[in-house]
Design a protein around this nucleic acid. Structure first.
Length: 577
RNA sequence: GCUCUCGUAGUUAAAUGGAUAUAACAACUCCGUCCUAAGGAGUGGUUGUAGGUUCGAUUCCUGCCGAGAGCACCA
């Protein structure tokens, strides 16, 4: 269901203009109907006269006048049509329109803003996919927040979304982690990477609990040590590679070790992702699919999609796509990232999904294009069903790119903790029930909003002070506004003012003119994959509400318009929520 | 070298090819018995640069400058 007349209104206006243009002899003109930046210039505006003027060889003002004459009284909810500027035609909507929109919004309740635009379309959005050998940093934060925002927006527009991730749980990186654990996690500090001994004496090894550190940091540290150890000595590097081979041969002891270290990883990820309110409907595990990928590669080789090089490596043939080629299987016969992605894409398509989205960093841009092209060549799906949703880089302000070696990584939990601490200080003096809960919620809003307020592709130099700001254009500002609305509504209830839209001031408030636009903003954000449209809109809405609040008394029993104001406030409340 | 992304007030950001380029922060001025002041009202721009397309360009195209990323057996 579409809970707004706004789109119908725009369509009616467009239709009326089309007819008027035909009568003027400029039926083919390609015009737009949009909201002017400033409501003093009407609720909708069209450039039709400017476009038609050229076709008709007349001045824009002249065409505009004829257009206005032809448009009079054609659309019932349009109260007034005016010419402005170089030849814009502005439409002023009737009072009832805004009242109806408020009523609509109140009827819709929590469904306000939703659409049926993508109804019955099964989509898959892959996002976040943290590597199990590392702790999640602010790069993952941006991925998760962007990904979950798109999941929610797409669902709000009717799509049936499966939110999912791929767990890269095999390969050399995990082997390095296993090595690091085996060698550097002994309680007595000795460095004897003996897997058979470990298998019999597991309690001689540390766990995150015995070391009293967060599990993801425990894992991160051991991976770094294992990695450095492999780099430092050829024997250790050999031993790490041997772990991969034993793992692929399903050596039970190695698998036991593998499960143990992954267990720590998942524990750590779960802590962070729960805080972020992440939702995965499905997680694919690389170890279950990399072999299937090799089968598709073999198939492709038979079909002539791929070619084998002298050393045995298998290469793509993407010349017709204008893309550089890439290896899909190594000369030693082992799988690469893209190998398993081919298999996964096939599996995803087999679920019946119409549209597959990958929320992944921009550095994967070429790899994604190559994957999409290869899948098309293999007949798995069409390229236009696949979408790479990239996003700008996260760096730490003043430090350039993050590097765990240089110690310039900013972890998600640290960011949240620092923000929470700052919030806690601010609310210490206040009469708030559950201070810890409030601090956590406010901190989360602050951090999320600092990312969502920017365009998706823009780089962000993450500034902890900036992100944790609680005033101005921020998440807490929106939360505060929501709380204020709730509080006013409570006062109104105590005073006996009941929301009602029967009586209202003759002039609509600026606030009303913003409220009805919410559904179309949601739609545009979903269609263009730009969550920040919604953030920007909510800031504007909150600013208008706060101005409204400052100028008007809402819960006043002596005011005949109070019920309407209360109804409007309630609408703002549910929009912000 | 080739390909992709980005360049807007001092700072951080906004602007489906439209009208006087919006906001926030910082600065300065004002609003305090009044629905939570985490608020409200008010004061400042060569949109990196040079062209092009257009009635109209921050937006589209081309060159240049600057930042970042990618370019086959890493993920």
């Amino acid at each position: 269901m579409v809970f707004s007349y706004a789109r119908a209104m725009q369509a009616q206006i467009r239709q009326a203009i089309s007819q008027a243009l035909v009568s003027l002899g400029a039926g083919e003109a390609d015009f737009s109907v949009e909201h002017p930046a400033d409501t003093s210039r009407g609720d909708y505006a069209t450039n039709a006269a400017l476009v038609a003027a050229k076709l008709l060889g007349k001045s824009p003002r002249e065409v505009a006048e004829q257009l206005v004459a032809a448009l009079r009284n054609t659309v019932s909810s349009v109260a007034q049509v005016e010419i402005a500027g170089p030849g814009f035609v502005n439409f002023y909507l009737a009072r009832e329109f805004f009242v109806q929109e408020i009523e609509r919004a109140r009827e819709a309740g929590p469904l306000w803003g939703t659409h049926d635009h993508f109804k019955h379309q099964p989509w898959i959005i892959e996002h976040t996919s943290p590597n199990p050998n590392k702790a999640m940093h602010i790069g993952h934060l941006r991925n998760n927040i962007t990904g979950m925002a798109l999941v929610r927006l797409s669902e709000a527009c009717g799509a049936e979304v499966v939110s999912e991730a791929i767990d890269n749980d095999r390969g050399i990186a995990i082997a390095k982690l296993m090595w690091g654990y085996l060698k550097f996690a002994r309680k007595d500090g000795s460095e004897d990477p003996n897997i058979a001994y470990w298998h019999e004496h597991k309690d001689e090894w540390h766990t995150p609990e015995t070391k009293d550190v967060r599990p993801d940091r425990f894992v991160d540290e051991l991976y770094v040590k294992g990695n450095a150890d492999g780099d430092a000595s050829p024997e250790c590097d050999q031993a790490i590679r041997a772990l991969v081979i034993s793992w692929e041969a399903h050596d039970e002891m190695v698998w036991d070790l593998w499960r143990t270290v992954l267990g720590f990883s998942y524990q750590g990820q779960a802590q962070t992702l729960t805080r972020l309110h992440n939702r995965w409907d499905r997680v694919w595990h690389e170890h279950e699919h990399y072999e299937a990928g090799k089968r598709y590669v073999a198939e492709g080789l038979e079909k002539g999609v791929f070619k084998k090089l002298e050393d045995g490596a298998i290469l793509t043939n993407l010349e017709s796509y204008g893309l550089s080629d890439t290896i899909v299987q190594k000369s030693d016969g082992t799988a690469l990232y893209i190998t398993q992605d081919i298999a996964l894409t096939k599996l995803k398509k087999d679920t019946g999904a119409q549209r597959l989205m990958w929320v992944i960093g921009p550095d994967q841009s070429l790899a994604m294009k190559q994957l999409f092209a290869v899948c098309e060549q293999l007949g798995i799906g069409r390229r236009d069903e696949f979408e790479h949703i990239a996003y700008g880089y996260m760096s730490v302000k003043g430090q350039g790119k993050m590097s765990s070696r240089l110690g310039t990584v900013l972890y998600i939990d640290d960011v949240l903790d620092m923000t929470k601490e700052k919030v806690s200080e601010l609310i210490r003096e206040r009469a708030i029930g559950d201070k810890d809960l409030v601090a956590e919620q406010v901190a989360l809003a602050a951090v999320k909003f600092s990312i969502l307020k920017s365009g998706r592709m823009r780089d962000i130099a993450f500034d902890i002070d900036e992100a944790t700001r609680l005033d101005g254009d921020s998440g807490p500002y929106l939360q505060y506004t929501h709380t204020r609305a709730v509080s006013v509504l409570k006062k109104a209830q105590e005073a006996g003012v009941v929301a009602d839209t029967a009586k209202q001031p003759t002039e609509p408030y600026e606030l009303e003119k913003k409220v009805y636009q919410f559904p179309e903003i949601v739609l545009r954000a979903a269609v263009e994959r730009e969550p920040h449209y919604v953030s920007t809109y909510l800031l504007e809405l909150a600013a208008l509400f706060n101005a409204f609040y400052a100028h008007e008394r809402i819960a006043d029993t002596s005011d005949a318009y109070a019920p309407y104001k209360v109804a409007l406030t309630d609408t703002v409340r549910q929009t912000l929520k």
